[in-house]
């Protein structure tokens, strides 16, 4: 008796189709329609009194290719890519989680709860916390001055570094919690095998662990890159105007200058660039066995 003949298959198929159509409907209403609207508006003319005037013009896109917006684009890509790489691989999440999964269950739980708490904090609270910590009067500069490491302590924000710190903080808890189950459940005997084959313990993460997690790390870096591209509060709170990312510029143009068509055109171009970069990264990081 097959699933089709006893009627189970058509019922399942019907449920799957309904669920699929629902998902497609939600996607259309909340993503595709606003996107289409944004693309259409990007060809309208700016009208400070009414946000836009219905027309068809390339003017907004021509403005993008002025050196100012190109510079902002490059700066945005650089700062978010840097933050994404830092948060995922170089310093924090991967190495931190490699250490945390070696702790006792009790301490692992403590760190997971702490990371979850961090993830629950709003961007504004995280930004303000760093603003205080990096300020001249109450934060790290003052502490360094008191300890004699800094003769002339000054506020460390706003700055490019402060903005990167803010972005990294936002991404850290998310990436760590994604990596936690993968690292905790990994087969440690692979690393032990590397040791018995002559790899010094301090080189095992570089020769074995990192290469094994290469695909996950690339996927996480790309995810973080896309996530951090859209972050608005951190660049505004912790960065200088010269450090502001395209997200801030888009918001500034669309809401501050009431130039919705230019904001929409900038957003469309950023979307295309991000998509192209993601496709390129995925192509370059195809899984290969060497």
């Amino acid at each position: 008796m097959t699933g089709r003949s006893n009627g189970a298959y058509p019922v399942n198929s019907f449920v799957v189709r309904i669920l699929g159509l629902t998902a497609f409907g939600i996607l259309s209403v909340f993503f595709l329609l606003p996107l289409a609207y944004m693309v259409v508006v990007s060809f309208y003319k700016a009208d400070p009194m009414a946000f836009y005037q219905v027309a068809f013009t390339w003017e907004n896109y021509q403005k993008y290719f002025s050196s100012f917006y190109l510079n902002v684009t490059l700066r945005t890509l650089w700062s978010t890519a840097l933050s994404a790489v830092v948060v995922v691989v170089v310093v924090l999440a991967f190495t931190a989680m490699l250490t945390i999964v070696e702790l006792s269950r009790k301490w692992q739980l403590f760190w997971v709860i702490l990371l979850l708490s961090m993830m629950c904090l709003s961007e504004v609270i995280v930004g303000f916390s760093w603003l205080i910590l990096l300020s001249e009067s109450a934060g790290i500069p003052r502490l360094l001055g008191a300890l004699g490491f800094w003769d002339d302590p000054r506020s460390l924000s706003p700055s490019f570094g402060a903005m990167i710190i803010g972005l990294v903080t936002l991404g850290f808890s998310v990436v760590s919690l994604v990596l936690y189950p993968q690292l905790a459940g990994r087969d440690k005997s692979v690393e032990e095998a590397a040791r018995t084959l002559g790899t010094p313990p301090y080189l095992v993460p570089f020769y074995v662990t990192l290469p094994i997690f290469r695909q996950s790390l690339i996927a996480l870096t790309l995810t973080m890159f896309v996530y951090l591209l859209g972050v608005f509060v951190m660049p505004v709170m912790l960065g200088r105007p010269s450090d502001w990312t395209m997200t801030v510029m888009i918001s500034d143009k669309a809401l501050g200058d009431a130039n919705l068509p230019l904001g929409a055109a900038l957003a469309v171009v950023m979307l295309i660039i991000t998509g192209a970069l993601l496709l390129l990264s995925l192509y370059l990081s195809r899984k290969r066995t060497v």
């Binding site: 005997s189 692979v190 010094p200 290469p211 290469r214 066995t289």
Partner: peptide, 25 residues
């Protein structure tokens, strides 16, 4: 002697092959 300095070959229960390397490597 640390494990990486002992000349001891070991086959693990899970085999612990390096999934990112081919047979030869």
């Amino acid at each position: 002697l640390a494990s990486h300095k002992r000349n001891i070959g070991m086959v693990f229960q899970s085999l612990a092959l390096f999934p990112h390397l081919n047979v030869s490597r």
